[in-house]
Design a protein around this nucleic acid. Sequence first.
RNA 1: GCGAGCGUAGCCAAGUGGUUAAGGCAGCGGAUUGUGGUUCCGCCAUUCGGGGGUUCAAGUCCCCUCGUUCGCCCCA
Length: 426
Amino acid sequence: MSAIQASRGTRDILPGEVGYWQRVESIAREILGRAAYQEIRTPIFEQTDLFERGVGEATDVVSKEMYTFQDRGDRSLTLRPENTAGVVRAFVEHHLHAQGGVQRLWYLGAMFRYERPQAGRQRQFHQLGVEVLGSSDPRADAEVVVIAAELLQAIGLKDLRLEFNSIGDQRDRQHYREALITYLMPYKADLDSDSQDRLTRNPLRILDSKDQKTQAILQEAPSLLDYLSPESQQRFERVQQLLIDSGISYNINSRLVRGLDYYTHTVFEIQSDDLGAQATVCAGGRYDGLVTDLGGPETPAVGWAIGLERLILLLQQLQPPIAPTLDFYIVSRGDRAEAQALKLAQLFRNTGFSVELDLSGSAFGKQFKRADRSGAVACLILGDAEAEDETVQLKWLASGEQQAIAQADLPKMTDELRQQIDRWRC
RNA sequence: GCGAGCGUAGCCAAGUGGUUAAGGCAGCGGAUUGUGGUUCCGCCAUUCGGGGGUUCAAGUCCCCUCGUUCGCCCCA
């Protein structure tokens, strides 16, 4: 009989690895909290329409990567492939705009895309993201980029680069689109087949083709940056100046275009060379039209998302796993001693120590072997003799020193024990 | 969705058609029935991801399938 396995493209995060996740999550909470961002949790599935309208029907994410299903009420629902659309839906639905000012939100959760799994790409994956709604100020763009950079740095990632671009507004892009098509048409036969296909459907995406020949042709192509209106140009320069003032270095990459339809003006990616075919750890940009597209009042917005599996892939290359620490390991034998040991474990846990109780009932020798392997600093020993006179043997595992302590004295020794544990640990 | 590689125990693996599937780590038991980290001994795959085929004979060759890895597409 074959055992059931996790579904293709999904993964268990086992205890040996979960320390990385907990660290990333707690650093994120702290940094985002200090920047006055508030957490928002939205449903893991939404009406299919939301993503078709929000992300864009022509995008690959929507046209071929969604987990869409009919529920028993015959509604078409979709597991969220990204979370900006969901957050904006919640923002509009609950009239968060009516609270005035700027809404700074963050989220963390599972996303789903039906794709071929690879390193750094899964069908269920996790994103940490921020969305700033209600400000068109270039400082908002700069703020989210700065926060992303600080967060990644605080987590400990190295050798990242920020690729930065502006894709202007709708009108700028329309003009550029025409110019690009005019330029590329004569070379059509020499483009790779995907790019030929995109020439009419989504020409901007040809810009980040990986095909050598296509890239060679693009060398002389008009640049998007030359088609920005004076206003768009000015705002692009302002955001750059703010980044420089904040000490953030970046690359202008006029070929950077994003795959989701809602972006306007600022777009950026934070990339690494240590992720194989996938380079992007964090990506985002401004999306001034999305809130109105989803039925809300005109609300400029900017945000990003970090792929947590990718981030942790990088982190694992840099840092050893984080093992939990253990203060006491309790060894016991005999009915009365075992009962007392259980109570002692409770007492120690309640005074803030971490405690593992040996449940094997095997010989003391075996229990000590396990105590040793548990990484505990000290061992508490209870046998028939200790049960009889209500004492406990305290043994420091590093030195082997051992002393008898009356069980009744333990509560008042908490501070002293804490100090000794800390001393042994150094 | 397309192209390529891989799949032997919990983990790392040897094995390249010929009788019983190396070895290491981990685990469990014992030497040591109240004291660990060393050492020694023993146990731990009727079976090679699954199914079918070729052959006197298949972990080894072929086909299908599942999983996984890499690349393309795309994306976090």
